[in-house]
C-alpha cells in the first residue's frame, strides 16, 4: 500500500488496511509503508546527488579548461545564511526528538521555528543574488558566476520542496492532526532537510575553495 513520500502525503491515500507482506518474511502493520517512504526518500536523494554530481563535474571540467574564469566574490550574507540553515536543521532535529518523548506543544513550536528559519534562508539567498548583481555579476558574466547562480538556484528549488514538506507537517501539527501515521512524514521531511543542509555545506566549500 501507498507510502507517504511528500506528494503522497498531499494525495492522502491511507495507511495499509491490514498486514501487507515484506518479501523476506518480515511483516508488520504500517512497517512496509514506512519503509517504502524511506526507500523512496533515499532513492530521491540518490537522484539529487547525481544531479549535483553532474553539475560539480561540469564545474571542474569547465574550470580546468578555461582562461576566462574570474572568481565570484562571496557575498557576506552567505555566511549568515549558512548559519541560519544549520540552526534550522538543528531545530528541526530537536523537534523530532521532543516529539518522540511526546511533547507535542514543544514540537509544534520548534518545528514552526525551523520552517521559518528555512524560509529566512531563502530570503537571504535572494539578498546574496542581489548583492552580486549590484557588483556586476550575473548568470552569464563568466563561468564562475554561471555556476554560482546555477547551483544556488538549483539548491533553492530543492529547498522550496523541503519547505513545502516542512510546512505541510507544520500545518498538520498545528491542527492537531499529527497521528502516528504522520510520524513518517515528520521523519522523512526532516531527513530531506538535513540532506539539503549537507548539500549546502558542500556548495559552500566548492565556492570558497574553487569558486
Amino acid at each position: 500500500m501507498p507510502g507517504s513520500l511528500t506528494t503522497d502525503i498531499a494525495g492522502g491515500r491511507g495507511a495499509p488496511p491490514s498486514t501487507p507482506g515484506f518479501g523476506d518474511g518480515d511483516s508488520g502493520g504500517r512497517g512496509a509503508s514506512r519503509r517504502a517512504s524511506f526507500t523512496g526518500l533515499l532513492v530521491l536523494l540518490a537522484a539529487s546527488i547525481m544531479m549535483f554530481a553532474a553539475f560539480t563535474s561540469a564545474f571542474f571540467v569547465r574550470r580546468g579548461l578555461s582562461d576566462d574564469w574570474v572568481s565570484t566574490p562571496m557575498p557576506r550574507v552567505l555566511w549568515l545564511n549558512t548559519s541560519v540553515l544549520l540552526v534550522s536543521s538543528a531545530v528541526i532535529e530537536m523537534a523530532r526528538r521532543v516529539l518522540r518523548s511526546g511533547h507535542r506543544v514543544a514540537f509544534n513550536r520548534l518545528w514552526t521555528a525551523g520552517t521559518i528559519l528555512g524560509a529566512l534562508f531563502l530570503c537571504g539567498q535572494y539578498l546574496a543574488w542581489r548583492e552580486l548583481n549590484a557588483q556586476g555579476f550575473y548568470l552569464a558574466t563568466n563561468p564562475s558566476s554561471s555556476f554560482f547562480f546555477l547551483l544556488t538556484c538549483v539548491h533553492a528549488i530543492h529547498l522550496l520542496g523541503g519547505i513545502t514538506a516542512l510546512g505541510y507537517v507544520d500545518v498538520q501539527a498545528l491542527r492537531l492532526r499529527l497521528g502516528p501515521g504522520k510520524r513518517t512524514a515528520v521523519d522523512v521531511s526532516a531527513a530531506f532537510w538535513h540532506f539539503l543542509d549537507a548539500v549546502w555545506i558542500f556548495l559552500m566549500l566548492l565556492f570558497v575553495f574553487w569558486g
Partner: peptide
C-alpha cells in the same frame, strides 16, 4: 522518469508479498 524510478525501486524493495524473496 525520476518520479517513476522512485516508485519502481521503493515498490520492489518494500512491498513484496510474504515469501517473495529477491
Amino acid at each position: 522518469s525520476l518520479m517513476g524510478a522512485i516508485n519502481f525501486i521503493a515498490t520492489t524493495i518494500d512491498l513484496r508479498a510474504k515469501g517473495m524473496t529477491m
